[in-house]
Simulated scan of single mutants.
Amino acid sequence: MSTPSAEDIIKAFVRVTRKKLENGETVQVPGFGTFSVEHRPSEQKEGPDGDSYMKPPRDVVTFEPEQQ
């Protein structure tokens, strides 16, 4: 069995992080920070033409760096 490359390690980290975030879990990386998902409700916005529209609800990934 060969030693995994840095690229292999990063791909594995991304896979695990994505899966946890999709499941609503928070991912804390010691010495780096915390990834989490926040729900943003729908909101009324105004377009460049002056017409208003509803921006749909969505989930966004947020990152909070660890304070040193």
Rank of each mutant, 00 (worst) to 15 (best):
S36M: 01
G50R: 05
F13G: 00
V61G: 08
G31K: 02
T34R: 10
E7C: 00
H39M: 06
D8R: 01
D59S: 14
Q28C: 00
E25I: 10
P48D: 12
E64G: 09
T17C: 01
A12V: 07
T62W: 04
P30T: 12
V29M: 03
D59G: 08
F63R: 13
S5A: 11
V14C: 05
A12S: 12
A6T: 12
F35D: 00
P41S: 07
I9N: 01
F35Y: 07
E25A: 07
G24P: 05
R40V: 14
F63D: 11
E46I: 15
G50V: 09
V61I: 15
R18C: 12
K45S: 02
V61T: 14
R15V: 01
T17P: 04
E38C: 03
R40C: 10
Q67N: 14
R58P: 04
G47C: 12
P56N: 00
P48C: 11
E66L: 14
G24F: 04
K19Q: 14
V16L: 04
G24I: 07
P57S: 08
P57E: 13
I10T: 09
E7P: 05
P65N: 02
P57L: 09
V27S: 01
V16W: 04
A6N: 09
E38K: 14
G33Y: 05
D51F: 13
